[in-house]
Simulated assay, not measured.
Amino acid sequence: MRHEAVAWAESVLCEPVVEVTELPGGLTSTMLALTQRSGASSVLRLMTKDPWRAHGADLTRRERAAQIQLLATPVPAPVSLGLDAEGVATGVSAHLMSRLPGAPATHIDAATVAAMAEMLAGIHDVRPTEPFRDYQSWAWEAKWTVPTWSRQPDVWSRAFDLLAAGPPTYEPTFLHRDFSHRNLLWLDSSISGVVDWVETSTGPAWLDAAHAATNLAVSCGTESATSFLTAYAALTATRPDRYWLVMDAVGFLPPPGKKAFFDSVDELDRLDAWLHEVMTTDLRP
């Protein structure tokens, strides 16, 4: 499969690929960094991992469409170079795109959080020519089971009750939908790239902010997450909505019988602490 995929990429690039390196961290896909004979670099997404593989055609088409919409904006997104959504040439859904400079952050500090908030506000200012699909909740009702590892099960029960009451009204906004420090590249102290646009959607801006906050909370703790929300609220002159924050936190639970995306004791404890923060603290700036 990899050989066929690289051969397809060469046909799109119109030059040979002299080096192939698998990039770390791909949850949904195999991500290959391609170095071309000219010295230029590109990235090839191959939708090889279940359950995303079954939806690969839609995901890669959506990513390409998002990147096209972002071409004329200040958002530093990759440029789409080629698409084999049905995997005719590559065997799986494939998307070839430019490779952006920079690397993931190795340390999260106040400046990192502030830059993230500013970038997300800029993404939400994008007005695509056609709306993307409506957002999908990842807090499915099948997940509404109090986790056995929680130190405060009553908080989870209250969170499930909040979700059962239904979402508040919101103004539809262009969403990255998987915005987090994990999907950002940095050069020095500046964001040089926003990657992984396969989940691009239309929905509530605070759901995007909530996802970034949950990721920060699980990785670093509640202080970074709260600081991010405060910065985003100040930039957008809006207030956090508990519903979207809860929806995102609950979305990190695995479906019954499935393994969580993370399972270290520290990460689970931080998710537990973040939900408690969201449910019991006034998060208004």
Rank of each mutant, 00 (worst) to 15 (best):
V113F: 04
W144L: 04
A159N: 02
W149D: 11
S189M: 08
D154C: 10
R133L: 14
H176D: 09
P128F: 02
Q152Y: 13
A103D: 09
A139S: 10
A105F: 10
P167D: 02
R182Q: 08
G166H: 05
P172K: 01
F160M: 06
P172I: 00
A139W: 05
P153M: 11
D125P: 01
D109Q: 02
A121E: 07
D125G: 07
F179A: 04
L163E: 07
P147T: 06
S137A: 14
D109T: 00
F160T: 03
L187T: 13
V146I: 14
N183K: 06
P147I: 07
H176T: 07
E141Q: 14
E171N: 01
G166T: 08
W140L: 15
L120V: 01
K143H: 09
T148E: 15
L175N: 02
S180K: 05
T129D: 13
P131F: 10
P147D: 12
R133M: 13
L162S: 07
Q152N: 13
L187W: 00
D178F: 05
P172C: 01
T129G: 15
L120Y: 05
L184H: 09
D134S: 14
I108C: 12
R127W: 01
M116A: 07
L162F: 00
D161C: 06
A110W: 04
H176W: 10
P104V: 04
S189V: 08
E130W: 09
R177Q: 11
P104M: 03
T106P: 03
L184E: 06
D161A: 13
T145F: 12
A117D: 08
W140Q: 15
W156A: 05
H181G: 12
P104G: 05
A103I: 08
A114N: 10
W140Y: 14
A139G: 04
P168D: 09
P168H: 04
R182E: 04
T129K: 13
A159I: 03
T106E: 12
E141I: 10
I123V: 14
Q152K: 11
P168F: 02
H176M: 11
F174W: 03
W138H: 15
D188C: 03
A142Y: 12
A139R: 09
S180L: 06
A159M: 08
T129A: 15
D188K: 08
T148A: 15
A121G: 12
A105R: 14
Q152S: 14
S190D: 11
W138R: 15
L120S: 00
A103C: 06
V146C: 09
M119I: 04
Y170W: 09
P167L: 03
S150I: 11
K143M: 11
F132T: 05
T129R: 15
P104F: 06
K143R: 14
D109I: 00
S150E: 10
H107A: 12
R177E: 10
I123P: 03
S189N: 12
A114Y: 06
P128Q: 01
R133I: 15
W138C: 13
T129W: 11
A139L: 05
S137K: 13
T173I: 01
S189K: 12
L175P: 00
F174L: 03
M119F: 09
A159S: 08
R158N: 12
S137C: 13
E130K: 13
V155T: 10
A115D: 05
A164Q: 12
L175R: 00
D188L: 06
